[in-house]
Design a protein around this nucleic acid. Sequence first.
RNA 1: ACCCCAGUAGUCUAAUGGCAGGACUUCUGACUCUGAAUCAGACAAUGUAGGUUCGAAUCCUACCUGGGGCGCCA
Length: 558
Amino acid sequence: MSPEELNKPSDFIREAVAEDLRTGRFHYVRTRLPPEPNGYLHIGHVKAFMIDYLVAKENNGELILRFDDTNPTKEETEFVDAIMDDARWLGIEWVRVTYASDYFDLLYDWAVQLVKKGLAYVDDQTPEEVSANRGTLTQAGKNSPYRNRSVEENLDLLERMKNGEFPDGSRILRAKIDMAHPNINMRDPAMYRIIHNPPHHRTGDKWKIYPMYDWSHGQNDSMEGITHSLCSREYENHRPLYEWFLEQLDVFKPRQIEFARLNMTYTVMSKRKLRRLVEEKVVRGWDDPRMPTLRGMRRRGYTAEAVLDFIRRVGVAKNYSVSDVALLEECVRDDLNKHSLRRMAVIRPLKVVIDNYPDDLVEEMDAVNNPEDPSAGTRKVPFSKVIYIEQDDFREAPPPKYHRLFPGNEVRLRYAYFIKCTDVVQDAEGHVIEIHATYDPSTKGGDAPDGRKVKSTIHWVSARHAQEVEVRMYDRLFNKENPEEGEEGFLNCLNPNSLEILSGFVEPALTSAEPGSRFQFERLGYFCVDPDSAPEKPIFNLTVNLKDTWAKMEKKGK
RNA sequence: ACCCCAGUAGUCUAAUGGCAGGACUUCUGACUCUGAAUCAGACAAUGUAGGUUCGAAUCCUACCUGGGGCGCCA
């Protein structure tokens, strides 16, 4: 086995596909991406998309992007464009774009065939009657009184349904299978329902009947020559029906294989719940950086590489699972650590005056852009008498093992000088508002000629060169690992601190950063420029924080 | 209560009848001009009970637990 083959991901789906090729069940691989254009893509979709895309790609096959637009009351073209944009961002490639609605005519012909074979009938029962007669999980259903209509009558009624002669809800076309079947999906499932309005986003007013998912999806798969129809486990109970239609129609039979959908800790994944977060203004929109939507994650600064790495590391299996968002965050750090430029920014500023530094002197300090990538080079950072440091980097009364700045202690200002805290200025309420310090001129650049060491290096920004910026600090949207427990529960465990807006200072090298560009703010985390940014008012989003061992130690100590 | 599916460390996932392995998390330590990164190490798992077998996470049975299923949603 070659190294490439050893590294190739393997899972039960890829094995099944390989076996189908080996046994000759199929001689090629073609998969489909079946989004419904009624919402934005989230991280859960990425898993499904990548399975479809990679299974095709790894087998020299094709991927068709097919929008599942069988319900005009829910779907809009706006989402078609957004979905394609997000999918392209992930690097997914497809051979063509199709729509379930492209096949409405052919599908109708197929329905007529089933009617002619006595395998489908028009039911005049009300929706309530259909529901009542379906039976329950433990009880068989009852046959509809219209179940044994003649083929001629069914054909006539179906034609008139199609022509719009009947009002919404008055009739449906049903497959004639078995009202006593233990699988409720097989109890004469609906194939077509009547919908007059609104017009369909692609076919306009042409159709008054629309196919149900079960009637449309598998047949479309067959029409497109899809070999493997990969979907989430909730369709497992639909597979017998999927196969029944194809069998009765005697057409090409794709194979449906189900896998477990992605769930993630500290977030919700259902479209309905995400919509509520938007509608109830819990978040600022579908692209709020706290959302698990692709649009949110993109705005947050996540890279496609990181998202894909996460999906790869999570794997594919059939059992229900909830992946840890910490793994996603780790993938993001891993990618950004290698590729992002380092900058200094102070997000909770504390003023430091270096008393023995000349009043008007400005020195340019050399700073490394990315220690992980020497080719990223260096830059100059201006230094002067008054600087800002992080409030966290000073304690008037240091706890044990704290070795940042405190009265009498010496630390290194990164790329600059050693400084020692000499005095603390407080306001009337006792809050520390200013620090005084002295520097050692012989430590320029950060090293002491006498070889003495400091235990801490802190970041800083020269006050007179600082650009003021808005910093949006994001945290998990929920404070419960699984907010989906319970129906309404998810709105009751919102993290009140999921967004904190700060005003901070950044070094000059950051003032002209383009929206979307990413940086590591040293010792803080990874940040990216928000699209709301303006040159006079830059805005940075926290993508993900750096691991913070000290914060962890301190928290444990309490 | 009926049907389908699944149970491997806190989490995700390998092992396809033959040494239970990897990743994340957590914890130690080394190194460090980022308390980051990196490096070294540690903790930690086959739901239960039977059966088949020289040998079972894997096959069989029962039970338990979890997920899905009674839309004219997808």
